[in-house]
Simulated scan of single mutants.
Amino acid sequence: MSVQLPWVINDVQIYHKNKLVEVSIGFARGNEFSCPECGLACSVHDSVTHRWRYLDFFDYRCYLTMNVPRVRCEKHGVLTLKETPWGRMGSHYSFMVEHEIMKLSSEMSMSALSKHIGEPDSNLWRVFKYYVFNAVHNDLDLSMLRRVAVDEKPQKRGHIYVTIFSDLDTGNVINVTEGRKKEVFSEFRAWLPKHGGDPEVIELFSMDMSVSYKAGRAEYFKEADEVYDRFHIKKG
């Protein structure tokens, strides 16, 4: 972990009994920070404390506790920075941990991921939805989309599912729709043109062998092929 001015490490505590590392980060006095709204350099008004889980240090859990500046902007008043070099406000996890969550979420269910990293699946879903929401609202260009991966994930206990559509060529998640009935393909078809995608040029769907998914593909993407990977064939 690299820490550079204006940020400084205030303290590091290692708790061997609990296998825990606590790192405290602050900022040097006299520095200015950009207003999160307009970007102008502003003086520090005060600070708030935020804590993120960081990447584990061997088998020790690591946490960053940080004094996050609140700046005084002449135009926008007193505002808290929206993010720091290590994490964003509103998240339980540092950027590096969020990256791992997004990477592993494409390889395992949220319940399995929850057990793997020892975090509540509700927190993991918040991270997942945050980045998917940003992806689909920040000028997502799907004009080159041709091949789509479709998968389901249990959202909560009690067999409540979401359907996840990903670009098979880039691996990026592009859409999350509640449910796993054939109608999710109808919603996906209607959603594509809003982001430059053309339903008529989709060539292939890689998905599991569920009856509803097969029916949805056949009804709403008649010209596209469907394939099943080894995992889905074995599971089916």
Rank of each mutant, 00 (worst) to 15 (best):
K222C: 04
V211M: 09
G87A: 02
L81M: 11
A218I: 00
D141F: 00
E226P: 00
S143F: 00
Y54P: 02
P154H: 07
S210V: 00
V78E: 12
V8H: 06
V211G: 06
Y220R: 03
M144D: 15
A218M: 09
I9R: 02
F27I: 05
L81N: 06
N175M: 06
F231R: 12
K82L: 13
V148T: 10
W52M: 07
Y213C: 08
R51S: 13
V201Q: 13
K19S: 09
R189Q: 15
V78G: 12
E183D: 12
D139A: 05
M66C: 14
L168Q: 15
S212Q: 13
A41G: 06
D229C: 08
D11A: 01
V184A: 06
I202Y: 03
A224K: 14
L140I: 09
E100G: 07
K75E: 15
D151E: 13
D151T: 09
E32N: 14
F27D: 05
H159P: 10
F231W: 15
Q13T: 07
D141E: 09
V8I: 14
S94C: 05
K214H: 02
E226A: 14
M89L: 15
W125R: 13
L124M: 06
L204Y: 07
S109L: 05
L140D: 11
E219Q: 14
G197H: 07
R70K: 13
Y60E: 10
R189P: 04
K194P: 00
W52S: 06
G77H: 10
S111L: 05
S91P: 07
L104K: 14
L145I: 11
K181D: 13
S166K: 09
M108F: 02
P199C: 00
V173I: 12
S106G: 14
W125T: 03
K194D: 12
E223Q: 11
R180F: 01
F188H: 12
L104F: 03
E226L: 02
F57N: 11
A149M: 10
S24R: 09
H45L: 03
I202H: 07
W7Q: 04
V176C: 09
C42I: 07
K82P: 01
N10V: 01
K182P: 03
F185M: 14
L142K: 07
F57L: 11
S206Y: 01
P193E: 05
N67T: 01
V12K: 08
S186T: 06
R51K: 15
W7N: 04
N138L: 00
W52C: 04
E178S: 06
W191K: 11
L204N: 15
S186D: 13
H116N: 10
L140H: 05
V12S: 08
K222N: 02
L113Q: 07
V12C: 08
F128A: 02
K182E: 10
N31I: 00
K153L: 05
C38F: 02
S210A: 14
V184S: 08
C35Y: 07
F58G: 02
Y213D: 06
W125C: 02
L5G: 03
K19W: 03
W191R: 09
D139Q: 11
